[in-house]
Simulated scan of single mutants.
Amino acid sequence: MLLGTLFIALGMLMYTKTMLLTGGVAGAALLLSYVTRLDFGALFFLVNVPFYALAWKRMGWMFTLRTAIAVGLVALFSRLTGGWIGVERLDPLYATVIGGGLFGTGMLMLFRHRTGLGGINILALYLQERHGVRAGYFQLAVDLVILAAAFFVLAPDQLLLSVVGAVIVNLLLAINHKPGRYLGVS
Results as ranks from 00 to 15, higher is better:
D157K: 14
L173E: 04
V167E: 05
L173P: 05
P156R: 05
A150D: 06
V164W: 02
L154G: 11
Q158H: 15
S162C: 00
L160T: 12
F151S: 12
L159R: 14
A155G: 11
F151Y: 14
F151A: 15
V163T: 06
L171H: 11
H177G: 07
V167R: 02
A174L: 12
L161R: 07
A149N: 10
A150P: 02
N170T: 11
A150C: 04
A150M: 05
L172D: 10
V167T: 06
L161W: 08
V164S: 05
I168P: 03
N170K: 01
L172S: 07
A166D: 04
V169Y: 05
V153A: 14
K178I: 08
I168M: 02
V153R: 08
A174Y: 08
L160E: 03
A155F: 12
V163L: 13
N176F: 13
I175E: 08
L161M: 04
I168E: 00
A174T: 06
D157R: 14
F152M: 13
A150F: 03
L159M: 15
A174H: 15
A166K: 04
V163P: 09
A149T: 14
A149R: 12
D157H: 15
A149E: 11
L160R: 07
F151P: 02
F152E: 12
G165R: 03
L160V: 11
A150H: 04
K178D: 09
V167G: 10
S162A: 06
I168H: 01
V167W: 03
V169G: 05
D157I: 09
N176E: 13
N176P: 03
V167P: 06
K178G: 09
I168A: 01
F151Q: 15
L171V: 10
A174M: 10
L171A: 03
N170A: 06
Q158N: 13
V167D: 06
A174K: 10
S162W: 02
Q158E: 13
V163D: 06
A166M: 08
Q158A: 14
G165C: 04
V167N: 04
V163A: 15
A166P: 04
L160N: 02
F151N: 10
A174N: 09
L160M: 15
Q158S: 14
F152Y: 12
K178A: 10
H177L: 08
L154Y: 12
K178L: 11
L160P: 01
V163R: 05
V153T: 15
L173T: 05
A150Y: 03
S162G: 02
D157M: 13
A166H: 03
L160W: 10
D157Q: 13
I175F: 15
A174E: 11
V153C: 09
A149D: 08
